[in-house]
Design a protein around this nucleic acid. Sequence first.
DNA 1: TGCACTTTGTACCATTTGGTTAATTTCGTC
DNA 2: GACGAAATTAACCAAATGGTACAAAGTGCA
Lengths: 223, 223
Amino acid sequence: MDDKPANGRSGGWKQDPAGVRNNILAVAMAEFAANGLSGARIDDISAKTSTSKRMIYYYFGDKEGLYGRVLEEAYREVRAGEQQLELDHLPPVEALKLLAEFTFDHHSRHPDFIRIVMIENIHHGAYLERSELIRLLNAGAIQKLEAICRRGREAGLFRDDVTPLQLHWHISAMSFFNVSNRATFSRIFGTNLFAADGQEALKKQMVEMVVGLALKPERRLGR
Amino acid sequence: MDDKPANGRSGGWKQDPAGVRNNILAVAMAEFAANGLSGARIDDISAKTSTSKRMIYYYFGDKEGLYGRVLEEAYREVRAGEQQLELDHLPPVEALKLLAEFTFDHHSRHPDFIRIVMIENIHHGAYLERSELIRLLNAGAIQKLEAICRRGREAGLFRDDVTPLQLHWHISAMSFFNVSNRATFSRIFGTNLFAADGQEALKKQMVEMVVGLALKPERRLGR
DNA sequence: TGCACTTTGTACCATTTGGTTAATTTCGTC
DNA sequence: GACGAAATTAACCAAATGGTACAAAGTGCA
């Protein structure tokens, strides 16, 4: 008698697994970045999705599974952006400067990535630990710096008691902190450092510090 | 007939409002630092307390009120520790070195404070905003550095295009990041930087960079 | 003595929240 | 065109969670 479907829905829909997955991931990344792992609400995520809550569980299993994929996706996007940078044609000092500047700007342009990493650190890196993909992605994150350092040492310019990893650490620290702690820092000390010219000054100082650290003392004068 | 209290309790107890409050605060700080604002559970906090859940609401109103007080307490403790440092008797360069080293070590010794600040940044500093106390506490956080810079400039040693706030920012960045991002960084790049000698090297490099930035170029040779 | 403040304990509640059930539709393919 | 696997939907559920109600009593000060 009744040929209407039991759920009252009659309209048609298209299958689009990849689209649905990506849609969920994008919304979830924004929600996790905004509210943290415990703070994010599956119902909120699903409401902002163009699909239903059930599909989240269909594709990602549970909340933690979804978070894990978001984490991977965040690292993937940012590392992909970093790969754009071409440095081999530059002399070592110029290459190091450019890499440091780029990192500063790149972090600044991707606050959601920074927030996801903050959140992951709050969780002691437990989910990153489970992802083989992320370890692979990051293995290459330091290769550019290693190449620069090798060339710099071969040219007699760079110290050899400063490792690429240490340089990466210093560059990361200042570029990351600049985004991660903006809220508390600016509320305590004002917003001058975060206006356009304040940021330019910080970046310039950061680059100067990093280059100064990498160079042999007797090479530092010609600036 | 029955002269026992209805709740079955009969033993005596002492009033100790301050003790109860402090006990709750200490437990709550550990729980919030470990799990974040949404992640922390009032029931878990109360279970680890020597008092009851009811008292949490009696003294702090609600979960956010408790978190706000924990935030204040965290800043208070750390700032109090910083005040211990005496620098006026040292020449400016030595004072700056010591301040930077101290900050690095101090952050390292107070990971729960770092985690609370991370969490507060995830919340965009919304609760810090409401606390007048914290703003007062932090106003003085930079005074030592201002004094050092003034003396350094008067002695003709320091540049005058590098402000105390900028120096504070750089020192904070490297000292903070060293704790905040340890989990993800060490999982990706190994734990060498965080072993004792790795930390000493990073600290030494950080101090060198900061002092190098503060000094006029022509004063940097005599190291 | 009177009275406000503090403390305890238990049971309770409304809502939120992560997660599931079961039925239906799409779509490649045999 | 039948069939089965994959995709999708709406309604539903049990547990967790922040927060209260209530009842009683100890403490300390004016």
